Amino acid sequence: MTDADREQGARENDTAAPAEPSAADLIGAALGGAARRAGLGADSSESTQKVVWTAMGGWRGILESVLPSLAFVVLFTVRPEPLILSLGVSVGLAAVFTAIRLLQKSPPSAAIGGLVAAGVAAVLALWTGRGADNFVPGLITNAVYGTAMIVAALVGWSLIGLAVGFLMGEGTAWRQDRRKRRAFFWLGIAWGVLFFARLGVQLPLYLTDQVTLLGTLKLIMGLPLFAPLVAVTWLVVRALYRRGE
């Protein structure tokens, strides 16, 4: 076989071999899949109210998000000792929600995530003996998510854009559209600011061991801020893709 034949064969192999997905493709597919599992679809005609309600998980999602933390705050305020009482009730409620989802064969990912987070937080608080340490995982989560959102937006790979691109079936093609790229940049910044705002308010309370106020503000800055930003995000996405159609 001549060198020319070998080169021709190599070119044919390169052409036939499928391109391996890039890191952006993998991240976007994961984010888009998570959005689908949360009940979000690619139909840009859906109402904003429906999208927000779906993103929150309906009444069940709201209860799963609020009740464990609310129970901890109330019980800790009324009776801070023994600490295991308020922590046990909080983790117990998360376990009940998870069991109900499993028995009803509904997607258990949200409830399991809440149970794992509550369990880790409770173990940490029992280990240190400080009720405030029950909120450490949430503080870390806000710092990580906020950093990821803002850094990704600044380097031109908005995580919101990646999720929406794969949810809408266009992958990373949105990066070739100046309007979409700019819109997803600012949405990424907005979500990053939300996470850092939570961290900025809650971290000083954690450092000063103000457990009741910390838990109360965590609840206030949770779904009440999450829902409006989901609504704004969906309104922007719907405008972008309806105009594209």
Rank of each mutant, 00 (worst) to 15 (best):
A10D: 06
R11P: 05
R11A: 15
N13S: 07
N13F: 11
A16C: 03
A16V: 06
A19K: 12
P21I: 11
P21Q: 08
P21V: 11
S22V: 05
A23N: 03
A23D: 03
A24S: 12
A24H: 04
D25M: 07
L26Q: 10
L26G: 00
I27D: 00
I27P: 12
I27M: 09
I27T: 11
A29Q: 12
G32I: 04
G32H: 07
A34I: 06
A35K: 03
R36M: 12
R36S: 03
A38Y: 00
A42T: 01
A42G: 04
S44L: 05
S45E: 15
S45D: 15
S47C: 07
S47G: 15
S47V: 14
T48P: 02
Q49I: 11
Q49F: 07
K50F: 05
V51A: 06
V51F: 02
V51S: 02
V52T: 14
A55L: 09
M56S: 09
M56P: 00
G57W: 08
W59G: 12
I62D: 07
L63Y: 02
E64N: 12
S65P: 00
V66M: 12
V66Y: 05
V66G: 13
L67I: 10
P68S: 10
L70M: 14
A71T: 10
V73W: 00
L75C: 04
L75Q: 11
F76T: 08
F76G: 02
T77V: 05
V78T: 11
R79L: 09
P80Y: 07
P82Q: 05
P82I: 08
P82R: 02
L83W: 01
L83R: 01
L85S: 09
S86K: 06
L87F: 03
L87R: 01
V89G: 10
V89F: 00
V89N: 00
S90A: 15
S90K: 03
V91I: 14
G92D: 08
G92Y: 01
L93R: 07
A94L: 10
V96D: 01
V96R: 04
V96N: 02
F97H: 01
F97M: 14
T98L: 13
A99L: 14
A99T: 11
A99S: 10
I100Y: 09
I100W: 08
R101D: 14
R101T: 11
R101Q: 13
L103R: 14
L103F: 10
Q104A: 13
Q104I: 08
K105I: 12
K105S: 10
S106G: 03
S106R: 13
P107H: 06
